[in-house]
Write a protein that binds this DNA or RNA. Structure first.
Lengths: 105, 105
DNA sequence: CAAAGTATATCCATAACGGATATAACCAGA
DNA sequence: TCTGGTTATATCCGTTATGGATATACTTTG
């Protein structure tokens, strides 16, 4: 199974956040500030996802938009998309159960 | 934040699974067999939740139903319920984002 | 040009996990 | 009754993952 950080990263990439720092902000945003991914966990997690074939770096060579040269861009591989989808589906089941249990409305 | 295992246990308890082994089966059931909590993680997690005040043991002294004497029963504390609800709410946000990203329907 | 923010990378101590091993009670059927 | 399979809890060990600090340097804004 994916780790929480792993899923967060995949979800951020699937949501169009292409590089590490943007991933970090996405997670903070979506959790209302509750979840913060420090740089240690962030870059380590990205590297692990790349090593596992769930994510790949790509060249965002759009010369029109003068992007920050330091940035490294990543996207999901088909395998990564599958993994993210599986995890999201598991999560819907957990949310349904939480609703059934009266934890949330 | 809760660990995945921690949330699973809280959710199982909130769903009326009172003792450790039942918690284990609940998680396996709800995930369609994808997530399995081994005894190491299971009992360690329960103990941690108790130590953190999210869960407490109680005496299921129902003499009518001759229950298994080995079982140890647990339930959520108010704090545990809050934590489980917060986590479930975060999860709904993640699921919504996954839907928006086209990962799930 | 200085300060704040953006961006990536690495290190270390701590926390958590997975799976094996152990022990034993419970239950169904031969 | 005894025997095997399942239920149930507990602990140990090696591995993996985390959180936070530290480092470095580019970019943007006033």
């Amino acid at each position: 199974m994916l780790t929480a950080a792993g899923f967060h990263v995949l979800l951020a990439l699937a949501s169009g956040r292409g590089h590490g720092y943007a991933v970090m902000r996405f997670i903070e945003e979506i959790s209302g500030g509750a979840v913060k991914l420090g740089p240690g966990t962030l870059y380590r997690t990205i590297n692990r996802l790349v090593a596992d074939g769930l994510v790949e770096e790509f060249d965002a060579g759009d010369p029109a938009a003068p992007h920050d040269a330091r940035r490294r861009y990543y996207k999901l591989t088909p395998q990564g998309e599958r993994a993210a989808r599986d995890e999201a589906e598991l999560m819907t089941r957990l949310v349904t159960a939480a609703r059934k249990a009266g934890l949330i409305t």
